[in-house]
Design a binder for these strands. Structure first.
Length: 511
RNA sequence: GCGGGCGUAGUUCAAUGGUAGAACGGCAGUCUUCCAAACUGCACACGAGGGUUCGAUUCCCUUCGCCCGCUCCA
């Protein structure tokens, strides 16, 4: 099967997002900056709705979850404790020929020394037999080059110790030939900055790569002041930053992104699998409520051998994006690793005293973590739709519609006077706009033909359109006076509704 | 980070070694009687930098960005 070289659907969505003011490339007038995006007038409404829905469902409608907004820049030790500095800051070595990448500390090399003279180098990847392998290579090397003399035993060193003049002489483990390896380069995922006026090592700080650590670091403060009892959760929405090597797929993976994370603390004796399942189901239901069809969702369980050593299990809710099935929402059982680490690094005990069980323990945690940006992209992709609609003369034309769930649509209702050159219509339409505006996002439009205005709203996913016509003014008698047509985005059907009943009709539909 | 492809209006495309056209969209106006009507007018582009050249949007180099594949994604 050949992979499609292009992705027409994705291109259409990207171009619609730009055309209608959802998403722009950041700093575009300067040529753009890779991995950063701006959200325009409609994008910002959509994101706000996503955040608000999540916050409402996750925090406000529950007794057991409280909110938090921690700072983006935290004490650098936070990232030592979390493992982001120590464990994931490994220098990497690339082989320019085979395109393989190795961790420098797992790549070993040694000079081949005959009669006290270095005649070449051998290399091997870390394994139980690295030393033996390299000794064998050295002997083979000696035979091949037909060099006489005494071969000294090889002494493997890892690549982080390679001197710059040695690097071109060390063979790549992939090809066996020297000259293709790059010097070790650090791939630190965290964005760095300096706090304070001095730009020295002591001032280095990091932009958080996840919001989660804020919840762990403030765990004690919340337990002490929040009147919370296990099981309970701490939720946070905020920006995070990662130096992704390859930002790709529109806003799917960016360097600045917004997370919605929740840490749900449970007893160390609780059945974590039960809570894990509970949160997976909760997240799936939430996505469906946000308008994503259940049929486009699936689950992926991370294989045990790929899990971090502290994780008991991670399940990703996957979404069928136009560019493939990709991770949307990760639900991780993190054990009590994070709290224990912070206890260790800060010296502050992170134990919870359980009034019911009458004992102390370090709680375990289940973490549903999702990106606002990813949800936004999934919503855009599943909402995008092209169908057929009749034009003025009844001829079928293709129509682009974003079928957003009304609760997350940027604009809930658009209001039109049938004609703009009739002051009575305009005045009445503006009165209807003012009536609804305190309760929902509205958009007033009087430009062009009515059909065009409907189509414009279809393209930005506005679920309802209201048109004020001559009947509204009472031209056909009192029966229709002060009624308007309410037009449905998806069916394009219209019904006649009394202005006085609009609010009670619309409000339940947009919740 | 590597390899391949590509950068011309808001979008989709065209042309050209002598500085660019269209369609759709946008804005304003005339006109309107419920699904992208018509007419008129207006605004808007050669991603950036350097080189070759009398002259570069066009050729070359660099860079930035986008797409596809690999890699990476704690």
């Amino acid at each position: 099967m050949t992979e499609p070289k292009e992705n027409p659907l994705m291109e259409k969505i990207v171009s619609l997002c730009k055309r209608r003011g959802f998403i722009f490339q950041s700093s575009e007038i300067y040529g753009g900056i890779n991995g950063f995006w701006d959200y325009g007038p409609l994008g910002v409404e959509l994101r706000k709705n996503i955040r608000d829905c999540w916050w409402n469902d996750m925090v406000r409608q529950r007794d057991d979850i409280v909110g938090l907004e921690s700072s983006i820049i935290m004490h650098p030790k936070v990232w030592e404790a979390s493992g982001h500095i120590g464990g994931f800051n490994d220098p990497m070595v690339d082989c320019k020929v085979s395109k393989q990448r190795f961790r420098a500390d797992q790549l070993f090399f040694a000079p081949v020394i005959i009669d006290r003279k270095i005649v070449g180098y051998v290399s091997a990847l870390e394994s139980e037999t690295t030393a033996a392998e390299m000794q064998e290579q050295a002997e083979k090397f000696k035979r091949k080059k037909a060099i006489q003399g005494k071969l000294e035993p090889v002494q493997p060193r890892d690549f982080t110790e390679a001197k710059s003049e040695e690097i071109p002489l060390i063979p790549s483990p992939a090809t066996g030939e020297p000259g293709s390896l790059t010097p070790p380069r650090a791939f630190n995922m965290m964005l760095q900055t300096y706090v304070g006026a001095l730009r020295d090592e002591s001032a280095v700080a990091y932009l958080r790569p996840e919001t989660a650590q804020g919840m762990f670091v403030d765990f004690k403060a919340i337990v002490d002041t929040g009147r919370v009892k296990i099981p309970f959760g701490i939720a946070q929405v905020g920006k995070s930053f990662r130096n992704e090597i390859t930002p790709r797929n529109f806003i799917f993976r960016s360097r600045e992104f917004e997370q919605m994370e929740m840490e749900y603390f449970i007893s160390d004796e609780d059945d974590w699998a039960k809570w894990h399942r509970y949160w997976i189901d909760w997240c799936r239901e939430w996505l469906v409520k946000a308008g994503i069809p259940a049929a486009q969702l699936s689950e992926y369980n991370h294989p045990k051998e790929k899990l971090s050593h502290y994780s008991k299990g991670t399940t990703d809710i996957m979404f069928q994006f136009p560019f493939g099935v990709q991770e949307l929402w990760g639900i991780a059982a993190r054990g009590n690793f994070d709290l224990s680490q912070h206890a260790k690094f800060s010296g502050e005990p992170m134990e919870y005293f359980d009034d019911v069980a009458k004992r102390k323990y370090v709680p375990h945690v289940i973490e549903p973590a999702v990106g606002v940006d990813r949800i936004m992209l999934a919503i855009l992709c599943s909402a995008y739709c092209e169908d057929q609609a009749p034009d003025e003369k009844g001829k079928m034309e293709s129509r682009v519609v974003l079928k957003f769930a009304p609760r997350i649509a940027p604009i809930k209702v658009a209001i039109f006077p049938l004609l703009k050159n009739k002051p009575e219509l305009v005045e009445k339409a503006k009165a209807v706009r003012d009536l609804l505006r305190p309760h929902m996002t509205v958009f007033y439009d009087e430009a062009g033909a009515i059909g065009r205005r409907y189509r414009r709203q279809d393209e930005i996913g506005t679920p309802f359109g209201l048109t004020i016509d001559f009947d509204t003014l009472g031209e056909k008698g009192d029966e229709l006076k002060d009624t308007v047509t309410l037009r449905d985005r998806d069916t394009m059907k219209q019904e006649r509704v009394k202005i006085s009943e609009l609010l009670q009709l619309l409000l339940p539909k947009i919740r």
